[in-house]
Amino acid sequence: MAASVAAMESAPVTSFKERLSGHAARVEQELRRLLDARERAGEIVRPERLLAAMRHGVLNGGKRLRPFLVIESAALFGRSGEDVLAAAAALECVHCYSLIHDDLPAMDDDDLRRGQPTVHKAYDEATAILAGDSLLTLAFDILATESGEAARPPLSPRQRLDLVKGLAVAAGIGGMAGGQALDLAAEKDRPDEAGIIRLQAMKTGALIRYACEAGAILGGATFADRERLAEFGSAIGLAFQLADDLLDLTADAAAMGKATGKDAAAGKGTLPALHGAEWTRQQLKGLVDQAHDLLEPFGAKAAALKQAATFIAERKS
C-alpha cells in the first residue's frame, strides 16, 4: 500500500483538474478498501445489503473536494502518506453520510444524487439511515486506527485526538447536523441574512473548514498556522455554498446531477435569492481574494489550494 501511495504522489500533475482527479482516484481506492466485505478486528460480520448501500452512497463519483483539501493542506507542512489518505477518507465518509441522510424523505426528499438514485430509492429508508449511521461511525474508527506505516513518523496521540475532536465538532450539533436542523426550520421561518450565513457556515462550511485545519494538524503546524488554514476553510466554505445556491437558481438538473430550484420551491431564503446573481458573483470574487491572501505566507507551495478556491467559486456543477 505504501509503495502505491508514494508512486501516485510522485506522478507529474500538469493542471489543477488533473491534480483534483488524481487525489480523487487515490481516495476512491482507499474507500473501496475500507468498504470491502472483510471483517475488521472486533467486527462480527458486515451485512451484505447494508454494505452495498454504504458503497452506493460513497462510491458514486464526486469530486472528492474535501479530501483534496485535507491532502493539499497537509502537503503545505510536508506531510503525506497513509495517515493523510486515511484522514481524507474518514472525512469523505462523514460527508457521504450527510448526503444520504439529507436525501431522505424526512429531510430534503431527493430522488437523485450525482445522476444516480439516492440510497433510500435504490434500497429503502431504513437501510439508508443505517448506511449513514455506519459511515459516520466508520469515520471515527478510521481516525483512531494507526496506519502502521513504518517509513514515516507516526501521528502523535495529541494529533490523533485533535483530528477526532475536530471532526466530531464539525459534524455535530454546533456544526453540520445543527446546520441541517436550521435548514429544515428555515422552510417555516425564513431567516434573515445573518441567519442564512450562520446556517451555511454550519451545514456546509464546518466540514470544509475542518478539512483545511485537519491538514494542518496532520502536518504538525503551529497553532497560528492551524488558525490560518481554518480561516481559509471558512472563506472557501462560504464560497462553496454561495456557488451552490447560485447554481440552484441558474443551472439545470442534468448539469447538476440532482434536482435544482428546490430551495425556492421550499421557500428557503438564500443570499443569491435575496441579492441577485451579480451581487453573488461579486461576493464570490471577494471570498476568493480573501482565501488567496490567507495563503500568501506559504508561497508557491499553496498554488493548488489557491486554484481550489477559484475552482469552488467558478464551478458549474
Results as ranks from 00 to 15, higher is better:
Ala25His: 07
Trp279Ile: 13
Pro47Ser: 12
Leu163His: 09
Gly81Val: 02
Gln241Cys: 09
Glu146Phe: 02
Thr270Trp: 07
Trp279Ser: 12
Asp189Gln: 15
Gly267His: 14
Gly276Val: 00
Pro67Gly: 08
Arg158Ala: 12
Lys268Ile: 03
Ala171Ser: 13
Phe240Gly: 09
Gln29Asn: 07
Arg315Leu: 09
Phe298Thr: 01
Arg158Asn: 03
His101Ala: 03
Pro47Val: 02
Gly42Phe: 08
Asp183Phe: 05
Ala251Thr: 03
Met1Ser: 12
Ile100Gln: 12
Ala230Ile: 02
Ala41Thr: 06
Phe16Cys: 09
Glu43Cys: 05
Gly237Ala: 15
Ala211Glu: 02
Ala300Leu: 15
Leu246Pro: 12
Phe68Lys: 06
Phe16Leu: 12
Leu31Gln: 10
Cys212Arg: 11
Ile312Pro: 14
Ala264Trp: 00
Gly205Asp: 02
Gly78Ile: 07
Asp102Ala: 05
Tyr97Ser: 03
Ala139His: 07
Met54Phe: 07
Glu9Gly: 01
Gly267Ser: 15
Ala151Val: 03
Ser80Ala: 09
Thr145Phe: 02
Val164Trp: 05
Thr14Met: 05
Gln159Trp: 04
Lys63Ile: 06
Asp263Asn: 08
Arg113Met: 03
Ala309Asn: 13
Ser147Asn: 03
Leu242His: 11
Asp263Gly: 15
Phe298Ser: 01
Ala74Trp: 00
Ala239Glu: 04
Arg26Gly: 03
Ala11Phe: 10
Ala194Lys: 11
Ala277Thr: 15
Glu296Ala: 13
Leu112Trp: 09
